[in-house]
Amino acid sequence: MLKINNLTKSYDKKNIALNNLNLDIKKGELIGFIGPNGAGKTTTLKIITGIITADQGTVEINGHNLQTDMIATKKSFTFVPDHPEIYESISGIDYLNFIADMYDVSIEDRKKRIQDFTSRFQLEGALGQKINTYSHGMKQKLLITAALLPQAPLFILDEPHVGLDPHSARVLKDLMLEHCKNGGSVLFSSHVLEVVENLCHKVAIIDKGKLIAYDTLDNIKQNKEMTLEEIFLEMTDHE
């Protein structure tokens, strides 16, 4: 579903943000992407989603190369950023319709999906309101709903649990699992290691721009009686 080969990115040709990163996500997999602050998680996700470009390396999603087949690649994923910065002076429903238009979602499908997702997120009542009246959590739920609308094969989320209430966090977990059950894949970054530990099929750990582990949790643990938090701290502790 997602193949990243030798991804390298530096700023000012001095500070290496990503160093030869490789990642291969299969259909139906739910991947947790973790790492200390500034390790390169957001940079990786921004490159995969086409927001910024890599110095070297390739990104392939659902068989499409991001560099050579941009539109088809972008139709194969949707993205929820860490900062919900969107058009703020339009209503929630206007935003959802805009996203549905961009991904060519039919009227019937969008109606059904919007009603389904917003009722699960308890957001139906706010759809007619301007986005700038939304709380951070409501904006986050709107962005997740928008990203789920096209039902793209790959669902990418950057720290999606920030700002969500317990009910919505649970809904999001269910939705991610459903997406994988239906043959899609999910890649999300997070600092909430309990969620990653309980939810993900595989865990990718990045530190200082390098992928230091990418495997199932059991394989990463290597039969040790440790939590993901303890393993993570052991692997990334440089003191």
Partner: peptide, 13 residues
């Protein structure tokens, strides 16, 4: 403009 990050991810040229 703050909308560029959003626009960059959409399937548009």
């Amino acid at each position: 403009g703050k909308d560029l990050s959003l626009l960059a991810t959409l399937p548009i040229k």
